[in-house]
C-alpha cells in the first residue's frame, strides 16, 4: 500500500513538473472589457442624433500581436427588439398599393456597429454568421416560416435596407481606435430616431481573425423629462391628454385673435 501511495505522490510531482513549463509557454488569455460612462442616455427636445463613445480595455494583450495590429475589436449597440411588418407596394390599376407583407419577430429596432477595420478584413463571413454579428448576419425570425424562402429572403433584405436607409442600422468602419495597447475607444452612432428602451452594447475581440472573447454592457435610452412626460400622459391618461390638446388649441386660437386681431 505504502509503495502505491508513493507512486501516486511521485506521479503528481511529475505531472506538476510537466505542467509548469507548458504554462509558461502559453501566454495568459486575452480578455475584453467595456465600460459606459453612463447607464442611461436621455433624449431631449433638441435631439438630432448623437455619437456615443464607449471605452474598453484589453486584458493581457500579447505585445507582439498588438504591435502588428492583429487585434481587432467590433463594438455593437443593439436596440430593443420588436416585431416588424415589412410591406411591399405593387402596381394595381396604375396605383401603388401595399400588397404583400411579411412579419418578423424580434427585430432589433436599431443596430450600430463600430469596427477597427472593414468587416471583411477582420474575419471570415462564417464566423460572423456563427456570432450573428453585423446587420447582414442578424437572423430575422419570420412570423410565418411556411412562406416561400425566396419571399422571406426578399423581405429580410428589404428590412435591412430600410433600416440602413433610415440610419437605424449603421456601420462605422474605423470607429474603434486603440489609444494604447490596452485601451480602445469606440464611437457608435445614435440615429435621430433611435428607439427608446434598453440597448445592449457588446464588444467582440478578434486576434488574427479568430474570435477570442465578448463583453457586454447595458444602456438605457429614454426620453428626457418633458418629452417623456408627454409620451406617458398620452398613453396612460389618453382622455385627459385629448382634453388638454383641445383646450390648448382653443386657448391658442383665442389668444392668437387677441394678439393679431385685424378687425
Amino acid at each position: 500500500m505504502a509503495g502505491l501511495r508513493t507512486f501516486a505522490a511521485v506521479s503528481l510531482l511529475v505531472s506538476l513538473a510537466a505542467a509548469s513549463p507548458a504554462m509558461a509557454q502559453t501566454p495568459p488569455t486575452e480578455n475584453i472589457q467595456i465600460g459606459l460612462s453612463t447607464d442611461a442616455v436621455s433624449i431631449t427636445a433638441g435631439f438630432s442624433g448623437a455619437d456615443l463613445t464607449i471605452f474598453g480595455s484589453l486584458e493581457n494583450p500579447d505585445p507582439l500581436v498588438a504591435r502588428q495590429g492583429r487585434y481587432d475589436v467590433i463594438v455593437v449597440l443593439e436596440g430593443p427588439a420588436r416585431p416588424v411588418v415589412v410591406r411591399r407596394k405593387d402596381r394595381v390599376l396604375g396605383i401603388w398599393v401595399n400588397l404583400e407583407s411579411e412579419t418578423f419577430e424580434n427585430v432589433p429596432m436599431s443596430y450600430s456597429v463600430a469596427t477597427t477595420r472593414p468587416l471583411q478584413d477582420i474575419t471570415e463571413p462564417n464566423s460572423y454568421k456563427q456570432l450573428s454579428l453585423g446587420a447582414s448576419n442578424l437572423y430575422m425570425q419570420p412570423a410565418e416560416p411556411d412562406d416561400s424562402p425566396t419571399t422571406i429572403e426578399e423581405f429580410t433584405a428589404a428590412l435591412r435596407e430600410r433600416k440602413a436607409a433610415t440610419g437605424l442600422y449603421s456601420e462605422n468602419v474605423g470607429g474603434v481606435q486603440f489609444l494604447s495597447q490596452n485601451l480602445f475607444r469606440a464611437t457608435v452612432r445614435l440615429a435621430p430616431n433611435v428607439p427608446v428602451g434598453t440597448h445592449r452594447a457588446r464588444a467582440f475581440l478578434f486576434k488574427s481573425g479568430l474570435f477570442i472573447k465578448e463583453s457586454s454592457a447595458q444602456l438605457e435610452i429614454r426620453k428626457s423629462g418633458f418629452e417623456q412626460s408627454i409620451f406617458r400622459v398620452a398613453h396612460d391618461y389618453s382622455f385627459f391628454y385629448g382634453v388638454f390638446a383641445v383646450s390648448l388649441a382653443m386657448l391658442t386660437g383665442w389668444l392668437g385673435r387677441l394678439v393679431f386681431r385685424k378687425d
Binding site: I230, F239, Y241, A245, L248, A249, V259
Partner: peptide, 22 residues
Amino acid sequence: HATTNQTVDVMLAFLLMAGGVA
C-alpha cells in the same frame, strides 16, 4: 384619436397653431 390611437402630438400641433392663428 387621442384615446383610441394615441396619435395626437401636442408639440407638433402647438407649433402649427402658433403659426396658424397669426
